[in-house]
Every structure is written in C-alpha cells, then in structure tokens.
Amino acid sequence: MTFLQKLGFWRKKERKETEAPPFLSKPWREINWGDNQRDLQYVKDYRPQTDGQQLRILLHGQVGAGKSSFINSVQSVLQGRMYTQALVDNTSHDCFTKGYTTYNIQKGPETFYPFVFNDIMGLSPTGVQVNDVKLAMMGKVKDGYGVVRGVPFYNNHPTDNDKVHVLVCVIDANTVTCMHKEIEEKIRQIRIEATHLNIPQMAILTKIDEACPEIKDNLQNVYKVNYLKEKMEQFSVNVGIPMNCIFPVKNYHEEIDLNSDVDSLILSALKHIINFGDDYINFDKSQQLCAMSCQNKNM
C-alpha cells in the first residue's frame, strides 16, 4: 500500500469514527405502530363542542411539497381505500394547485367529517403572496380564488366556519437545507401573521423515504434516524415552528393498497392537527363569551 493509499485509508477511518451513528439508541418520539384502530376511532369520534362548528385546516408550503398528496392520503386512510380527490402532478416543476380549494371528507352516505382541508397555491418567488394567505386565514377568501378572473372571491362577512383554525406548513424533507431564501422568508412572515390571529401552526415533513434510505427500507425507523431529526431541528430553527409541532409523514404516491406504517404516521399527524385546531376553537369561543359578558355588564 502506497503512502497516499494509507493516508486515504486512515482519513476514511477517522471520518467514520467521528461521524454520529445513523441510528439513535432509542426512538426520540413514540408512536403507536400497528395500533391504528385507536387513532382512527379518535378521528372518527371527533366533534367540536359547538353544534354546526367546522374545523378548517389550511395547508400551505413550497411548490411540489405534497399538500394535495397529503389531503389524498388522509382521505385514503379515513375511507379505507386509495382516494384521489385532490389532483396532483408528477411532471410539472411549477405550482399545480392554482386556486383556493376546500376539501370535505365524506364519512357516510350523506355525512361529512366536521373538519375540512383548504389547499392554496404553492409558495414560490412568483406563487401565492403572504397577504393572500393572511386573507384566507381570516376567512375572507372564497373557493376558486386565483383561478377565475373577474369573479368576486372576497368574503366581506366571514363566519366562524370560514376562518382557519389551524395552519399547516407542508415541507419536502429533501429541500430543508437548500430552501430558497425568499420562500423561507415567506413561511416566517405567514407564521407571524398567523400568530397575530392566534392561529396555531404546525408543519408536515413529507417525502421522508426519499430523504433517508434507512426510512425507505423501514418506515418505523423514522424516529430513530439521526439525519431526519437534524433536518427537523434545522427547519425548526429556520422558521420558528417548535419541534413538537413538526410531524414527518410519507404520503401515498406509488402504492395501490394501504400500508399500516404509512397510516400510523398520517393518523398521528392528523390527530394532533385536530387537537390544535379544536383548542383554538374552544379558546376563541371562550374569548367571545367573555367579551359578550363584559359588554352586558357595562350596559
């Protein structure tokens, strides 16, 4: 072995010894793998405390992150079969979702779940603007906004059901460390606007199987892989969303049948989305009651 070969050998050995192991000694977050029926029943049993109240979930994020795919994945889990109501595109590098769209999830022949998803045009230098997302959060945007010109899509008198109750940022795990600065700034600005409106914020990290081969081999490694945890921590630092509000998922993409592990991650994220939104609804209702009580006392 030549001197240069020996030098390269020892450098490789030294690098391997100093690198963090790919797997943690134990999962840093617990999840009920294989116990999907309990979480599924939790979602099916959810009812807002106020009759007629609808929990509205707004998804936003970079172009191609998988907002529409997440909606389809949620519907697939709840329907018990593959479902593709929200159209997705596998070829366009531009934004495929062109407008503001509401997705209701059917529960029975004539019934729907008491929560809805809203999809909006993706974030890009030429995509949706921060003020558009702010108006949507305030309930002042009607379905179809951004698609049909010359039609009034501004809602002058939004109801409690029109307003957004939880904001979810959808991010491609492959782009966390190379995200365009302008998009990153938009996410921060949208977060600030949501905070002013007291709307809780979460993040969904998609395409985790593409970002980590260890997860592609076994999805149950998701909370054991150092690399993914570091990506989540980096995103948390970049935009300010706490780690306990960030959930990694794998959307249904190439599968034709449901997978128990994929369902587990989607249900885990969905359950927390519902809880965050429901807490906001209850807090907002209590604030309204307090304001009404104070007005009555002053009369």
Rank of each mutant, 00 (worst) to 15 (best):
A211D: 09
K12G: 15
V168Q: 10
R15G: 00
F3S: 05
K207R: 14
I208K: 07
E214S: 07
T50P: 00
A211I: 02
K181E: 14
M138K: 15
T2H: 05
K224Q: 12
P200K: 07
K142S: 13
Q295M: 09
D143T: 12
K16A: 15
A194T: 08
V128W: 02
F283I: 01
V63K: 04
I281K: 08
V74S: 00
F283T: 12
Q129G: 08
K181D: 11
R47K: 15
K163N: 02
S73W: 07
G108V: 08
Q295T: 11
Q41R: 09
S236F: 07
V130T: 15
V133T: 01
M82G: 06
E30N: 11
K285T: 12
E254K: 04
K186T: 00
I281C: 11
M232S: 08
V237R: 09
L270S: 02
P248R: 03
T50H: 05
S124F: 04
T126Y: 11
Y100N: 00
T84W: 04
I120Y: 04
H93S: 13
N298L: 13
T97F: 00
P109I: 06
T101K: 12
A211Y: 05
L265G: 00
M232P: 00
L24N: 06
G122L: 02
N218C: 10
C178G: 00
V63E: 03
F23A: 02
A291P: 01
K231E: 10
T159C: 04
G99N: 05
T102Y: 08
L58I: 11
E110M: 12
N275A: 14
